[in-house]
Design a protein around this nucleic acid. Structure first.
Length: 616
RNA sequence: GCCAAUGUAGCUCAGUGGUAGAGCAGCGGUUUCGUAAACCGCAGGCCACGGGUUCGAACCCCGUCAUUGGCUCCA
């Protein structure tokens, strides 16, 4: 018996409705296990499912498998595939299965006298009445719900890709296993296409483009996860803030500003301490000596803006006439994320959040929540974001008073309202129980990075608990006091993650309104008349706020164009003697080539219009 | 935080124990040219950091830091 496994909330499940590709990959996982056992007979296996990019198998083995071992393992796998063993399905009784697991015959080539500890544990988690099946390929037998391909030879092409650590059943209290990742396809051509796609995706990786385009920088002396914005990146930051400010102003928000830190006491009130302390930077601890002796004072960098905003709500007596009250701030927050979690701009330790807190009555809630959702959709339209999922997280009634605030009535009411808003506005969403914030249900918007990692890019949360902890009140129409509901929302997420996402979304080719260098005026040669005319054009554009530069040097036009293209300048305006005589300028768009000569006034007007409308 | 890999010029990378290299970018010249790269030259490095082994270390060993791939966690 393996002691004390911590079980996840959802049971281990392998769907029976697998696609052919998934069956190939799932089968490849079994072949991988077979190969590992041939080399290291003592290996113990946990789970080996197909995943989006391929498959993995979790193995417990004293030998540390490194990529250097792949060749050896792949050679054994090839033998199994060449042998073309049948994947044989056997249905057996629970008692038989348990006995086999005790004898160590599951995920094994032959009995080995040591129980198949993980398989035994998995078996015990299978509900009574469910069929228990084994799959055999050659000498290898595994507990498995299937399905598989017919024969090992049906695995047309495969490759081991990397090793990683994982905890058994994803719980860090469980033993750590080695996860061997690989991928498999019907044939070699499809596999090569897959690797080519990955290479393409890497070119869009925001970390690579961020360096190339001089958008941001990380520095050892500043610290891990603390991005510095270079001038080009700062343009993106400020354009987003401009968009947010315009949008929020139009939607009736008020802007506020709050400091980056606060005393310990505020986070005790908010409930973030001690439960959240691990994801906060350690406090600044002051020893202030006064007449009554030394006194310790702790200040924390803020991990979220809500407590500060709540304090602003409470700073002035509020009436129902003031509601809804909407406080917006691009607040800078600091979270001490675990070192292994940091990932370029997508997961950082200092971040500026497109935050706002909306305080309203229960009657106003639905309209407010709906307006917030409409704001999301408008943003996504501007950016042309189509591949996203709205994830509606609800509470689990069994965990009231533990993981969730114990107020079943308000949970039901707010969840129904949120669901209603989602349904009536025709937004696609998935509902996920047990994932709500402790203070209320929430909607997260999930997107994927170029290399396929999933991120929450925006969040919209209902809070019916924390305002009460802060004693927030407003005078009702009948002169009693009531506590407002609060909506936390960040449709543009944080600058860091949102810009990281946008870099990949646009593959660095930003629309004109966002492009760090919007226009470059390029002269053909450096004749005095050309330079003068080019400089006048740059000056005119800059006077309208356009980020324009001139390249009036002696380099050949080809070289100047190549430079501007490499730097992803959105619009290149080429000025030669021919254009000068015609009062024209020839327009070239990044990645789109030469559009030909046009009157200067028309070109300038077009640029201004495109920026004004934030055209795609 | 955990497991593993990686760390050489601003960037991309060569360099397996014997005087640190290339391309691009940068700088200086020459070139005066119609839409993705003209030519010549120059400069640039505590080989992440700290210890060790060795006559000698970018290279071998140990530790630290950072990054990357995953696991847990999240905007």
């Amino acid at each position: 018996m393996f002691p004390n496994f911590h079980l996840p909330d959802a049971p281990f499940l392998i769907s029976n409705a697998m696609t052919e590709l998934e069956r190939i990959r799932h089968s490849a996982a079994h072949v991988l296990a077979t190969a590992i056992l041939k080399i290291w007979p003592e290996a113990q296996f946990a789970a080996g499912p197909p995943v989006e990019q391929g498959f993995y198998y979790d193995v417990d083995l004293p030998h540390r498998i490194t990529p250097d071992d792949f060749e050896k393992i792949e050679a054994e796998m090839k033998k199994e595939i060449k042998a073309n063993h049948v994947f044989e399905r056997v249905e057996i009784s629970r008692a038989e299965a348990l006995a086999m697991a005790e004898r160590g015959e599951l995920a094994a080539l032959s009995p080995r006298g040591v129980p198949s500890k993980f398989k035994l544990d998995i078996l015990q988690g299978i509900p009574d009445g469910e069929a228990i099946t084994l799959y055999r390929n050659g000498e290898f037998t595994d507990l498995c719900a299937g399905p598989h391909v017919l024969r090992t030879g049906n695995i047309g092409a495969f490759k081991l890709t990397h090793v990683a650590a994982s905890y058994y059943k994803g719980d860090e209290r469980n033993p750590q296993l080695q996860r061997i990742y690989g991928t498999a396809f019907k044939n070699k051509t499809e596999m090569e296409a897959h690797f080519a796609l990955i290479e393409e995706a890497k070119k869009r990786d925001h970390r690579k483009l961020g360096r190339e385009m001089e958008l941001f920088h990380f520095d050892d002396d500043v610290g891990p996860g603390l991005p510095l914005w270079l001038p080009n990146g700062t343009v993106l930051v400020e354009e987003l803030e401009k968009l947010a400010k315009e949008t929020e102003f139009a939607a009736g928000y008020d802007r506020v500003r709050t400091p980056h830190l606060a005393r310990e006491n505020m986070y005790l009130t908010s409930g973030h301490l001690p439960y959240y302390a691990e994801s906060m930077y350690p406090p600044m601890d002051f020893q202030e000596s006064g007449e009554e002796g030394a006194k310790s004072e702790k200040y924390y960098l803020k991990a979220m803006n809500c407590p500060h905003h709540h304090k602003l709500f409470g700073a002035v007596p509020r009436s129902y006439r003031d509601l809804p009250l909407r406080f917006a701030e691009y607040g800078t927050c600091y979270r001490y994320e675990q070192s292994g979690e940091l990932f370029g701009l997508m997961r950082v330790r200092s971040m500026q959040m497109n935050d706002a807190h909306l305080y309203c009555t229960e009657e106003q809630f639905e309209a407010e929540f709906n307006a917030v959702n409409q704001m999301y959709l408008r943003y996504f339209q501007i950016f042309g974001i189509q591949k996203y999922v709205m994830r509606f997280s609800t509470h689990d009634p069994a965990k009231l008073g533990e993981k969730f605030v114990n107020d079943p009535v308000l949970w039901k009411k707010t969840e129904d309202m949120v669901r209603g808003v989602l349904q009536r506005s025709g937004i696609n969403y998935v509902e996920i129980p047990n994932e709500a914030a402790f203070y209320g249900p929430k909607i997260d918007v999930q997107v994927w990075s170029a290399i396929g990692r999933e991120f929450t890019i925006a969040t919209n949360q209902v809070d019916f608990a924390v305002p009460a902890r802060f004693g927030l009140k407003y005078k009702t129409r009948d002169n009693t006091e009531a506590t407002p509901l609060c909506i936390h929302r960040a449709p543009l997420g944080t600058h860091e993650r949102f810009i990281g996402f946008l870099i990949e979304h646009y593959a660095g080719n930003f629309p004109l309104w966002l492009a760090p260098e919007q226009v470059r005026v390029v002269t053909i040669g450096d004749d005095a008349a050309l330079v003068e005319s080019g400089q006048a054009l740059v000056t005119e554009l800059r006077s309208h706020g356009v980020r324009a530069k001139g390249d009036f040097g002696t380099d050949p036009i080809k070289a100047k164009i190549a430079d501007a293209e490499h730097r992803r300048v959105h619009t290149m305006l080429v000025l030669g003697n021919r254009d000068l005589e015609a009062g024209a300028v020839s327009v070239r768009l990044h990645g789109k080539g030469n559009l030909g000569a046009k009157p200067r006034a028309e070109v300038v007007a077009g640029i201004l219009e495109s920026i004004r409308t934030r055209a795609a």
